[in-house]
Design a binder for these strands. Structure first.
Ligand SMILES: [Mn+2]
Ligand SMILES: [Mn+2]
Ligand SMILES: [Zn+2]
Ligand SMILES: [Zn+2]
Lengths: 138, 138
DNA sequence: AGTTTGAATGCAACTTAATTGCAAAATCAA
DNA sequence: TTGATTTTGCAATTAAGTTGCATTCAAACT
């Protein structure tokens, strides 16, 4: 009987290790994006370099995608089934200016611009800043 | 007889100094976005901290806006007249994956998404990655 | 089960960009 | 000219990300 994390790792052809299971579990238990520092907080005994390389591996294997918001550090989120190896991030992201959380807007499409012929577009990324539901109520 | 840079500084209520004129001149002579390191290269005698604070001041006064592309360092570009203090970046940006240059797509609008009521959007930023005109010809 | 082998890990050191403190210099208005 | 305020230069520091290397581990193969 394998855990969800183990299943996912197997599906993505990532070798199963204790570290990877636990890092992935952190993502499975959270709804918003997480930075390397967030993972360090969640797994205080874990080594930063190991977490770093774990995130890189996960991104490369399309288990996570990375997001740059206005914060200083890169954040990561679980890929949806629309993410492919070497082609991530087809949905917009929302960054709350108050609490600093960033979430995936899965289910929303990034509107595609018609650019002149001299531009060849490979990837669109749309970041929306504003105030999240939680912070509006406060 | 004031230079273009001096005019601009005056318009934006930024005190005129030698450093500021020369940093602004670098932007006026370039079509693509520039990082702090780029300015250091263009003005080798200038001090990094001074350039840093100059860029911050320019951004705050809506003379420059900052852009985060896939490169490690933040880039800056001249604001168009649509930029306001505390409300930058209303056009998309294009980052070439080959040469690494990033340009403003002024004249293109960022399509606005209809988000659920529980999200309050203040700012949209759209980054398009791909291959620029120059690099396609090579 | 024991052996082998390439991959993953832990630790420490390093890189890089961004950022700050502070004293000296420059600006500007009175 | 003087005094208050802002900007500058230099050096030191922060913070995130990244790497080298010896050791350990996972899993495939006797
Ligand atoms: Mn996402
Ligand atoms: Mn721009
Ligand atoms: Zn919030
Ligand atoms: Zn190019």
């Amino acid at each position: 009987m394998k855990s969800d994390a183990e299943q996912l790792l197997k599906e993505k052809n990532i070798k199963i290790t204790a570290n990877r299971i636990l890092v992935l579990d952190v993502f499975l238990k959270n709804t918003h994006t997480l930075s390397l520092a967030d993972i360090e907080l969640a797994l205080p005994w874990a080594d930063r370099a190991t977490i770093f390389r774990t995130l890189k591996t996960f991104e490369e294997k399309a288990l996570l995608h990375s997001i740059k918001d206005d914060d200083k550090s890169v954040k990561y989120a679980l890929c949806s089934n629309t993410c492919q190896v070497n082609h991530h991030r087809i949905h917009p992201h929302f960054h709350c200016d108050i609490c600093g959380n960033t979430v995936c807007l899965t289910g929303f499409d990034i509107p595609i611009l018609k650019l002149p012929d001299n531009y060849k577009a490979n990837n669109y990324s749309l970041m929306i800043n504003g105030i999240c539901e939680k912070c509006q109520k406060q």
